[in-house]
């Protein structure tokens, strides 16, 4: 229980940190971005919108503290301001449209990557000196060293442009009307295949190598040797004895992994013109759409933090030592 409270506390504090970074950054930077922005949008926005923007950026406003309170208030009432780029669409609407794409893409490829990577790691740790053990770490290392977006570019070029097997861009076929029907879902799956494979290949190596090394620690433990001496079946020894314990340290590196996949996803979405939140963030920065930048960064950060919280809580379920107050 103490552990769960501890993790929840950390989640709340890190959430606060993300929110505060988002608040402080624009105010800390040299050359007030708000001024540049106002010059740009002077003629195009209604006075009310300008006022709202001034409020959001604290122009002609009272103290920093007051701005902070207003900012927090707006945040929790989902009043995130209006987009400059597609004025006057509220930022929250645009986010709503793009968030499911990214969560779907990143979520599914991360889950697949964890499962496939862990399984392969178990397999090659057991069959040491086998063909896969010699080649797989090297192949995965190559993928680890490659930039995600370049692999994505190559995939677009080879499978999209040269071979024409997969579409080169977008989340679904524009000629298909969105809706809950088979054609639309098929179109989504078809379009997401290449981006998902890119993310999968980029993140797989960490799980394989990590699991392989953990397995080797665990296989050296006395209880595994004892079970083997007792004549426990190989498959049982592998999964019920060794892998069960080896998988735990894997979870602690999840924070790093999910951060990497999200970063990769921002780049991959750009390559595929995928309608996700990463693409939204990039184009917002390019067109200096500050409300959009703030909102999309915050959502990406919150999504990563929530994913980490879930894994932390899962960890406490899987490892009873943590719940009973052992060392964390």
């Amino acid at each position: 229980m103490r552990y769960v409270l501890n993790r929840l506390g950390f989640f709340v504090l890190s959430l606060w940190a993300a929110i505060t970074i988002n608040f402080i950054l624009p105010r800390m930077m040299p050359g007030n971005p708000a001024d540049a922005m106002f010059a740009k949008f002077q003629g195009r926005l209604t006075p009310a919108a300008l006022d709202a923007m001034k409020k959001a950026y604290g122009i002609g406003q009272s103290t920093l503290w007051q701005q902070y309170i207003d900012y927090l208030h707006g945040l929790f009432t989902f009043n995130w301001g209006l987009s400059f780029m597609q004025y006057p669409t509220p930022v929250s609407d645009m986010i709503q449209g793009s968030l499911p794409w990214t969560i779907g893409l990143v979520g599914i490829s991360t889950l697949l990557s964890v499962f496939i990577g862990t399984a392969l790691g178990v397999y090659i740790s057991w069959n040491r000196k086998g063909f896969l053990d010699n080649t797989l770490p090297v192949v995965s290392m190559i993928f680890q060293a490659m930039p995600y977006f370049w692999i994505a570019l190559l995939f677009v070029f080879v499978f999209g442009f040269k071979l024409g097997w997969f579409p080169m861009a977008h989340g679904y076929d524009p000629s298909v009307t969105p809706g809950f029907n088979a054609t639309y879902i098929n179109s989504i799956l078809y379009h997401s295949f290449l981006p998902a494979i890119t993310l999968l290949l980029g993140s797989l190596s960490g799980w394989i190598i990590g699991m392989r090394n953990n397995m080797m620690y665990t296989l050296g433990e006395d209880y595994v040797s004892f079970a083997e001496a007792k004549g426990v079946k190989t498959s049982r020894l592998m999964f019920s004895y060794a892998a069960r314990n080896a998988i735990l340290p894997q979870l602690t590196s999840f924070a790093i992994a999910i951060g990497n996949v999200v970063s990769g996803s921002i780049l991959t979405e750009q390559v595929f013109s995928y309608p996700g939140i990463g693409n939204q963030l990039t184009s917002a920065v390019q067109s200096q759409d500050y409300p959009m930048i703030q909102a999309s960064f915050l959502l990406i950060a919150v999504a990563v933090l929530v994913a980490n919280l879930i894994v932390d809580l899962l960890y406490s379920r899987l490892d009873p030592r943590i719940r009973t107050g052992g060392t964390v």
């Binding site: 890190s14 970074i21 951060g259 970063s263 921002i266 780049l267 933090l305």
Partner: peptide, 13 residues
């Protein structure tokens, strides 16, 4: 836990 590239992009903005 902060998503690195997103943070970098925001700073660049």
């Amino acid at each position: 836990v902060m998503p690195g590239l997103a943070l970098l992009i925001v700073i660049e903005a």
